[in-house]
Simulated assay, not measured.
Amino acid sequence: MAEIISGQDALDTLESSGNTGGNDKEFSSFKGGSKYVVKAIGTNDLFGFYNYGIYSKGGGGVPSFVAKKPSKKSDKGFPQEDLTSWDKAFLHHYENSKEFGDKESNEAYKYKPKLRFALGFFDLDSGERIVIDVSKNQANAIRKPLLKQAEKGKLGKVAFELEKESDGSVSLTPIVDLDDLTSKQQENFDKAPEEFKIEDFHGVNFEADEDEMLRRLVQSGFDVTKIGYEIPKPKEADGEGEKESAGEPLEISSDDLPF
């Protein structure tokens, strides 16, 4: 089963200084220009996970996924044991890098497991729980005003505007006066659940087994024979044709970049 970093472990990972197939639930869209009016149920509605995939600004790339059988990693997220094919591709380039920022270093970053966080809120427009996928720096930026309101004892008394700009920056702005909400938003605010149950979303990521990871590694353009694999055979199409695997390319921000 894919690794999930929950509870205090997730908080420790989020607050540390180091770099670091689903169910019917899905991540809510949180791209540049996204805006939600939300209620925060608690301060610990989050979990962390290590994600693979390659973002391509012009489209394409490799859709994001998590490993069904994850590798063991150091506290800073460096793969150490039970390596996946993507971990081996990362290490192949990493070990050939002469200096930070060179071609091999940049290639290594493409295959590196990237620490991401899922944060949960209650959407006051839809009246449903939502979970967004963010980087570590983005998660910290969102949680700072959240914790500030919690310290004041006002967490359940204010709404928030959750927003992502086109440059990848994120914000969570308190709406102290609930009269500023629409009647529908006020109604949903009053009937919001008292508990979020973030565990319900642990299967939100697409989990790839090693065969699927290897196919995606070939899709990325990496020569898998360099790390001891044979080129895998294409998936057999079913009667309706081969279906595209789940997962979407990540929209990255500056803190996702290697330098």
Rank of each mutant, 00 (worst) to 15 (best):
4 I>L: 14
8 Q>C: 02
12 D>G: 04
17 S>E: 11
31 K>H: 13
32 G>S: 10
32 G>M: 08
35 K>I: 13
41 I>N: 01
44 N>P: 05
45 D>R: 03
46 L>R: 05
54 I>K: 13
61 G>V: 13
62 V>K: 10
66 V>G: 05
68 K>P: 07
69 K>C: 02
75 D>A: 11
76 K>F: 00
77 G>S: 03
82 D>F: 02
83 L>G: 00
84 T>Q: 00
100 F>Q: 11
107 E>N: 11
114 K>A: 08
121 F>T: 07
121 F>V: 02
123 D>R: 03
125 D>Q: 15
126 S>P: 09
127 G>Y: 15
129 R>S: 12
131 V>C: 10
132 I>M: 00
132 I>V: 12
134 V>H: 05
136 K>N: 03
137 N>R: 10
141 A>Y: 04
144 K>E: 08
144 K>C: 02
151 E>V: 04
158 V>S: 10
159 A>I: 08
168 G>P: 01
175 I>M: 03
178 L>P: 10
179 D>S: 14
186 Q>M: 05
191 K>P: 02
195 E>M: 07
202 H>Y: 15
203 G>V: 04
207 E>N: 15
214 L>W: 01
216 R>G: 08
218 V>I: 12
218 V>Y: 01
227 I>L: 05
229 Y>M: 01
230 E>V: 13
233 K>D: 07
235 K>H: 05
240 E>D: 14
241 G>Y: 10
245 S>V: 11
246 A>W: 11
251 E>Q: 15
251 E>L: 08
259 F>E: 03
